[in-house]
Design a binder for these strands. Structure first.
Lengths: 157, 157
DNA sequence: CCTGAATAGGGCACTCTGCTCACTATTTTT
DNA sequence: AAAAATAGTGAGCAGAGTGCCCTATTCAGG
């Protein structure tokens, strides 16, 4: 196989668990909670980093703390030919914090943060104004009933 | 007002920007990129932490690195009376990494990671099997066309 | 049997941390 | 206008952590 992605073993998993438990723990601390030497922990962390196991820090910032307490998901239907340009245009809207290209009826699923309902309305308008966007369907997130988590998957490994 | 949430000022914003640029930078490094004293940086970071500006470390872990390259969004329609119990049941499914209670037609928007299409099919079945779940609509994410980001919002502040 | 990878352990210079204290502005309250 | 809270600075210090080096051991695969 040409592209063998480095895949995590049990020790890596334990490392990630320990980090999840305490994101600020030092290499030394990790080493002795896992019963490994500091060298090993450092080597593994480097490998994890290099293999792209970590995503941007942005994800750890709470949008609510920034003054955007509301999250909404907007399904965007577009003229598929213009998809590439539309993505570029959408990327200019700061309140769009993430967008996925989707299979199925919806072309794009856009995650938006906003200050209030009026703000959401305005943002939706901005999206609709993009050339090639045909229709949107907005749903406000009332709450994160299962907060983002990966630990169940880590624990299973 | 009873609950005045601590709101970030320009300096906090710059701090977060600097952290986004380099999540591993030390207090000392932050202090001199921002032209502040180390004491100030430490104090502000503590305040940020205490005010809940940071979310779990889980969010920084790349599910693909864990062996789950596929992401899907599943709209779940439920008997609303049973919503609370359903959330509890869903939380037992490890592949569900997040779920939002929604306004609008869909009751729940569930984010799932999986190994392949067959895996997704199985997980969908598990969700459908929960007492009170009436219908699901699964959409596979083909790609994260706008990767999660908060920097445009930070830059605007 | 040899090789390469992973780990452990030691060491060393340097940096960072957590903490405290004293001092200065700048607001806010009274 | 005076007093008090708030934010920032600068300095210092002991202890901990980091990055980097080298060596020895174990263990699986060719």
């Amino acid at each position: 196989m040409f592209c063998t992605m480095y895949s995590l073993d049990k020790t890596d998993t334990k490392l990630l668990q320990a980090l999840s438990a305490d994101p600020r723990s030092t290499f030394v601390a990790l080493a002795d909670t896992l019963g490994l030497s500091r060298n090993t922990v450092q080597a593994r962390m480097k490998r994890l980093e290099d293999s792209g196991a970590f995503l941007g820090f942005d994800r750890r910032i709470n949008p609510a703390a920034l003054g955007y307490p509301l999250t909404a998901f907007i399904e965007v239907h577009v003229q598929q030919k213009r998809l590439a340009q539309i993505v570029i245009d959408l990327a200019l809207i700061p309140e769009i914090v993430q967008a996925h290209g989707m299979s199925g009826q919806t072309d794009l699923l856009v995650r938006v943060v906003c200050t209030d309902a009026a703000d959401l309305f305005r943002i939706d308008g901005t999206i609709l104004a993009c050339e090639g966007v045909e229709r949107t369907e907005t749903s406000l997130a009332m709450g994160e009933v299962i907060p983002y988590r990966l630990t169940p998957l880590l624990d299973r490994g």
